[in-house]
Computed example of a mutant assay.
Amino acid sequence: MAGPDFDSEIKQLQATMHTIEQVLDLETMKAEIASLQEQVAAPDLWDDQANATRVTGKLSDLQGQLERFERLSNRIEDLGVLVELAVEADDADSMEEAQRELPKVKTAVESLEVRTLLSGEYDAREAIVTIRSGAGGVDAADFAEMLMRMYTRWAERNKYSVEVFDVSYAEEAGIKSAEFAIHAPYAYGTLSVEVGTHRLVRISPFDNQGRRQTSFAAVEVVPQLEQTDEIEIDENEVRTDVFRSGGPGGQSVNTTDSAVRLTHIPTGIVVSCQNEKSQLQNKAAAMIVLKAKLLARKKAEEAALKKDLKGDVAASWGDQMRNYVLNPYQIVKDLRTGFETGNPQPVFDGEIDGFLEAGIRWRRGAEKVEA
């Protein structure tokens, strides 16, 4: 009886992998890898460091995608052989091994399938994440810091590097805001589903009467820019302020005015950077973030115009997108996808892949309805 069940499961996995293969276009991918390898082998590659970084990064990403697909295809094939031998030999131990392997392979296939859904114009980019505390006083500031830790822990779990541009600490606890980059292919496409207002309900650790408190924090995600992106900024429209870097509780961590705050006067967008040692380095880093936000704003305005012209034919992303409830019961629930877990602590420790995958699938479904 186990054999036919496995046959059905394996055939479904193979069908999904065939669809993924078509989406990835493996032949084109292999040709691009060969072209990039030729460029990497060129003796003058590093004469242009920016281009060299782009080429080597693209090569590494494509090789990783190809290896992941081939490795998973081999696992499915090996699973089929294991089941076949177990049935022929009536080997209970081998069948138990297959039963343990099947859900692991299914999870891996589902994860790879989600990656193929990231086909937006900027989905393959690295991400710049901004978190701001909202209503809720000190609890909101503490919640904002919890979210920052959640995303940085997620990055650490996936071995992605994180570059913190700026953190504005609140007086009592937590943070007013934070801005950081996650350097990984498809970080923007993956984390863009986190955009919106996050809501926390818990017994406040800052309330001496032990009352339940609701607090909010906002998450914004924009793609990291590349040299080919056309965003021009008139320097006369940018106000530059310099100040000393600050730590928790107002502690000064720099004795010179090296931190930089840029204000784009026409839009009111403000970005800060204080992680570098020199004022020039901080200004350059802040300008990168400012350009990324201006690009995201431009794309959002274009999308809004298209939507106005087409009409509201599908539910749009709501502002409040996820609840984190710690009292009177425990649950983390995404209000758009319905995905939830009754164990919040692993979520705050960075285990958010389930929410990300559900969000990506939900977004693709919404896009199909709008098309």
Rank of each mutant, 00 (worst) to 15 (best):
Y151T: 03
Q224P: 13
V55S: 02
E171A: 12
G64H: 04
Q345V: 10
A170V: 03
D61F: 12
Y169W: 11
A315E: 08
D91E: 10
F243E: 10
F143H: 05
Q320F: 02
A135C: 15
S60N: 00
A314K: 05
V271R: 03
E110N: 12
K307R: 11
I10G: 04
V271L: 09
E172W: 08
V369R: 11
S204F: 01
Q12C: 00
A98E: 04
K333D: 12
E70K: 12
D123I: 07
R239W: 15
R100E: 09
V162N: 14
R71F: 07
I20N: 06
A366E: 11
K30I: 02
L102F: 04
E237V: 03
T240I: 08
A181Y: 01
Y188T: 02
S8Q: 10
Q65H: 12
A217D: 01
F348D: 03
D334C: 11
Y186T: 14
F339C: 05
S73Y: 05
E113F: 06
A86M: 08
V195R: 14
A303V: 05
A135I: 10
V270N: 06
G210M: 12
R54W: 15
T197F: 02
V167M: 15
K291M: 06
N74H: 15
G189E: 13
T19M: 07
Q227C: 08
Q320V: 08
V201E: 05
L326M: 09
K333R: 08
I231Y: 14
V164Y: 03
L118G: 13
R153Q: 10
I175T: 00
D78W: 01
M17F: 04
V201D: 03
Y122K: 02
K30N: 04
A292E: 12
V55F: 00
K299F: 02
A89Q: 10
D91K: 09
D61L: 14
T130Y: 10
G318V: 06
H18I: 03
A34R: 15
L72I: 02
Q209F: 06
V219I: 15
V242P: 10
K159M: 04
R149I: 03
